[in-house]
Amino acid sequence: MKLTWRKRSQPLEVKGCLAEGAAGHELRRKLLQRGGLQAVECDDLVVALGEEPPWVDGAVFLGRKGNLYLPTLWEPELPISWIVAGLTKLGEPPWLLLPDGRVLGMSEAWVL
């Protein structure tokens, strides 16, 4: 079943950001330069966690709802508890869920 998304009436507070491609490289560079932030890398996607992640042009900012990291501006049309129940079988929380359907486990975020 495909998960549909809608725009949030109120954006979430920033708890991280993700960037891909050139923006991902830039984010990685800033993370290494500043240090102290938790991050996850997967192929050319870089995710930084924290309330004040570096800004890079093209980054998607993330908020958190329970055990889910989500884009600040979008929300799935299913209740979060249902989604979390489904994700529990896949591994340890928290997870990052993106509108294009990708799910990334964030439990092994490390400090860059």
């Binding site: 920033v14 950001c17 004040e52 992640p53 800004w55 501006l73």
Partner: peptide, 29 residues
Amino acid sequence: VEGVLRDIDANFSETDLPAELAQLRERLK
């Protein structure tokens, strides 16, 4: 400057960004 850019991008999608704020975003960049 990065802090303001972060708040702009976290709160407004490209399509919802008011014109004045869009211009300011470019200047900040």
